[in-house]
Simulated assay, not measured.
Amino acid sequence: MPPHLRGAGLYRSAAPPRGATSHDAAAQARRHRQQRRWATQIVVIHELAGRACAERGLAPPPDPRPMHLLTIPESDAADLGSIVAAALAHSPAARALLAALEHEQHIPETAVRDYYDRNLDRFLTPDALRRGADPYAAPSDVQPYEQVRDAITRELRRAAARRAFFDWLDAARADVEYAEGHEHPGDPTHQDHEHRH
């Protein structure tokens, strides 16, 4: 091996650092396995979404973002789980499918009104927020339903689309067979499964 490549990239020695224990090596190997399983899921979702888009006649736009600039909003990782959030950030096909599912969601007016009535604290006026007003004490402290109706509808449609995406994904992954070592990180059939997403 040329001297300038020693210790670099793929040529780096696999020997544990001096002072490392077998426990450290085992933990590192477990992390590598979990990372491989996690990355496999991203690729699988991208491929399945591409097939679903083709079946629906959807043409995902090309994604101009380089992979190394991929960022995932923390709120998406918390709401969706890191695997689905990363797949949506990486895959134009997954995003196109989610957008199509969102377009298909019908939110009844009664559901929008019910959400408003049950969550008045989310619709306090700026002045009421500054005063720390009780949203259920003075109706004048709450933004009128007509002002926030469209935003609520969008939020409920988005939430319904995400549920539909998860339902689609569960069904689409049901027949996927993984090579050993590439199973889902949360698959309880392998020893070092993790339930974190």
Rank of each mutant, 00 (worst) to 15 (best):
L101V: 02
G81H: 10
V176Q: 05
Y116V: 02
D175N: 11
A89E: 08
A85L: 06
D175T: 04
E146N: 10
D127M: 10
P135C: 02
E146A: 15
E102Y: 02
V84S: 13
A99P: 00
D121Q: 08
D175V: 01
E183Y: 00
I83Q: 15
D79S: 14
S91W: 08
Y116E: 03
R149E: 02
A100H: 02
T153A: 15
L98P: 04
E180M: 10
A111E: 02
V148T: 09
E180I: 10
A151P: 07
P92C: 03
F165D: 03
A128N: 11
E102L: 10
P135Y: 00
P92Q: 01
M67S: 12
R131E: 04
R154K: 10
A174M: 08
L80V: 03
F165C: 09
I83N: 15
M67C: 05
L129N: 01
A99D: 04
D127T: 06
R162V: 08
T110H: 10
R113C: 08
L98F: 03
A78W: 04
P139S: 04
D187F: 06
S91A: 11
A137D: 03
L101Q: 11
H103K: 15
A87T: 06
E102N: 15
A133C: 02
G186L: 02
D150K: 07
D63F: 09
H106E: 09
H103G: 14
E146D: 13
L101W: 09
R163T: 05
A89H: 04
Q143A: 11
M67F: 12
R154I: 01
L120M: 07
A87V: 02
E180N: 13
A137L: 04
R131A: 05
D141K: 13
D63N: 15
P73S: 13
T125M: 07
E183R: 05
P126G: 07
R95G: 04
E102G: 14
R65S: 12
P64F: 14
D114P: 00
A93S: 10
F166S: 06
V148A: 04
T153D: 12
W168M: 04
V176E: 05
L97D: 09
D150I: 05
P64M: 15
P108D: 05
A151I: 13
Y145F: 05
D76Q: 10
A96V: 06
H184T: 07
L98W: 01
G81C: 11
P64I: 09
A85S: 06
A160F: 13
V148Y: 03
V112C: 08
R118V: 02
E102S: 14
S140M: 08
A111D: 07
M67T: 11
D76V: 04
G186Y: 00
A89I: 04
H182S: 15
A86C: 13
P73Y: 14
D76G: 05
D141Q: 14
H184D: 10
A160W: 11
A78P: 00
Q105K: 14
P144M: 08
I152N: 15
P135H: 00
G81E: 10
R95N: 05
R158C: 11
A111T: 04
M67A: 13
L97Q: 09
A159Y: 02
Q143Y: 06
A161H: 09
S91D: 07
Y145I: 01
V112S: 07
V84H: 11
I83A: 14
R158F: 11
A133K: 06
A77E: 14
Y115V: 00
L124A: 08
